[in-house]
């Protein structure tokens, strides 16, 4: 049999075995659409309130105690400078991740997340001018891409995904704490990306590392 014939027969056969529950997907899609629209409205209303009240939107950049910002300079550039470098977590355990995911209503995914992330684990976050990397101390790369800061909001754009993650960030006594705001990534094997993002970035605070920068990982 030629390759062409085998390919056509093979893929057609496999595809024919896929019969999704379209009505269930349609219902979920419409529900997600309404939820996203509501979230966007709330976000716009909040933004409008901030602008109208004149509250500094860059609160996160000004509230920290580790390094005054220079008057007149670009606050986002200064905030970015504060984040640049390597941040290391304490050992994050499955128990801690369980608490975080349960609080977010994602407790049912903890076993998969724990297995895939190899818990317990020490995480390192590296922010530099060319991008960010999140990896384990044993060199496993979890995430990498572009990042930006706008006031108290840190935005990550993973290189391998058409998605955006946003966090509220603050530094208390040299400890970086991240709080997930939004994660628009599609689910992975039925597990919301939010579960991975919360586990990796929000379970434990990160402390600035005094040591070298991580080597670029090769996927």
């Amino acid at each position: 049999m030629s390759l062409d014939r085998r390919m056509r027969d093979g893929v057609t056969h496999v595809a024919a075995s896929i019969a999704p529950d379209v009505e269930a997907h349609l219902t979920r899609t419409l529900r997600r659409f309404r939820r996203r629209r509501t979230t966007r409205r709330v976000a716009l209303a909040a933004l409008a309130a901030v602008v109208i009240a004149g509250v500094p939107a860059l609160q996160g950049a000004f509230d920290r105690g580790d390094g005054p910002l220079v008057a007149g300079a670009n606050p986002n550039a200064q905030a970015r400078a504060l984040l640049e470098g390597t941040w290391v977590s304490p050992v994050a355990t499955k128990l801690q991740v369980t608490d975080v995911l349960a609080a977010a209503g994602l407790g049912q995914h903890v076993d998969v997340v724990s297995l895939e992330m190899g818990l317990p684990v020490v995480w390192l976050l590296h922010f530099e001018a060319t991008g960010y990397r999140a990896r384990s101390a044993s060199e496993s790369l979890y995430d990498h891409g572009d990042w930006s800061v706008n006031g108290s909001t840190l935005t990550l754009r993973p290189a391998e995904c058409p998605c955006v993650l946003t966090f509220n960030w603050r530094i208390d006594q040299d400890r970086l704490r991240l709080e997930l705001l939004t994660d628009e990534s599609p689910d992975l094997k039925g597990v919301p990306d939010e579960a991975y993002a919360r586990a990796l970035y929000t379970t434990v605070p990160f402390t600035r590392s005094r040591f070298g920068t991580p080597k670029p990982a090769t996927p």
């Binding site: 895939e116 496993s140 979890y142 391998e160 995904c161 990982a217 996927p219």
Partner: peptide
């Protein structure tokens, strides 16, 4: 992305 994740 999956290939990246297979690292872990």
């Amino acid at each position: 992305r999956e290939r990246r994740r297979t690292l872990v």
